[in-house]
Amino acid sequence: MIKLCVGIDSYEDLETAIALRAKSGGRTYLSSHITRMWPKQEDALLNGGSLYWVIKGFVQARQNIVRLDEVTGADGVRRCAILMEPKLIRTSSAPRRPFQGWRYLKPVDAPSDLPDSRKSDDALPKELALALADIGLR
């Protein structure tokens, strides 16, 4: 699954936001995202699926999905809470055009996780990242 990370400017910003929520949530904290629609591909998401985050036009991170919970908003509308491990995993940078809501991401299209030795690398300039993606080198 892939989703735009609205209001976040960098991988580090998202990591900080998750850490702050986890600190107040205690040891059993799970990161969450509430959505109106229940995913039809629930089985695939719950068997090793991840939520990939698009930050400033590039997929930069993912979180492993743990479960889906039904929640009811203050307006009485039934929604889906996507619960994820709080650990944020940095991925190789992959450009993504804006879209609304969330989309399914085919495993073949998912960017790879960055090895531990590259997790502190600086982000590539946007133009360079786009040029590399155009020639098939993400």
Rank of each mutant, 00 (worst) to 15 (best):
L30E: 07
E15S: 14
P111N: 09
K87T: 12
L46R: 13
G48M: 00
I82Y: 02
S32H: 14
Y52V: 13
I89D: 04
V77S: 08
A61E: 08
P107N: 07
Y11Q: 12
E12P: 03
P125K: 12
L14W: 14
Q100C: 04
Q63I: 03
L114R: 07
D122V: 09
K23D: 03
D122M: 11
L68M: 08
G136C: 07
A61S: 14
L132K: 13
I65G: 00
R138H: 04
P98M: 01
E42Y: 14
E42I: 15
P107E: 02
G101P: 07
Q60N: 07
P115L: 01
L51W: 02
E42C: 11
L83T: 01
V77W: 04
R118Y: 07
I8L: 10
R79T: 08
S24K: 14
Q60E: 09
S117Q: 06
P39Y: 04
V6K: 05
R36P: 08
R103M: 07
L114F: 04
N47W: 03
S112M: 09
V108Y: 12
L51M: 08
G49K: 00
Y52K: 04
F99A: 00
I2T: 09
A17F: 01
T16E: 15
T28F: 15
N47V: 03
S112G: 11
W38Y: 10
R118D: 10
V108C: 09
H33Q: 05
E15K: 05
K87M: 09
D9A: 15
W102A: 00
I2P: 02
S24H: 08
R78W: 08
R118A: 15
L114T: 06
R97L: 08
I65D: 02
S50G: 11
D122N: 13
Y104W: 08
A44G: 10
C80S: 04
W102I: 11
A61G: 03
S92R: 15
A110F: 02
V108Q: 11
A74V: 14
A19P: 06
M84F: 00
V59A: 12
K56N: 13
R118M: 11
I2K: 09
G26A: 15
L130Q: 13
L105N: 04
A94K: 15
K3M: 14
E15I: 05
R96V: 03
W102Y: 12
L137G: 00
S120H: 11
K3V: 12
R97I: 05
S10H: 05
A19C: 14
P86D: 04
L105Q: 05
R118S: 08
N64G: 11
I135P: 06
G136Y: 05
D43S: 12
R96Q: 11
T28G: 11
V108E: 15
L83I: 09
E42G: 02
E12F: 02
P111E: 06
R79F: 13
R67G: 11
R97D: 05
A61K: 07
V6L: 10
Q60R: 14
A44T: 13
K40E: 13
D69I: 07
A131C: 06
A94V: 14
E12M: 05
K23G: 06
L14G: 06
M84S: 04
V77R: 09
Y11D: 13
G73N: 03
Q41L: 13
S92K: 15
A129Q: 13
P86Q: 04
M84H: 01
D113G: 09
E15Q: 15
Y29L: 02
R97Y: 00
R96A: 08
Q60F: 06
G7I: 01
V71P: 04
E85I: 07
V54F: 03
M37R: 15
G101F: 03
R90E: 09
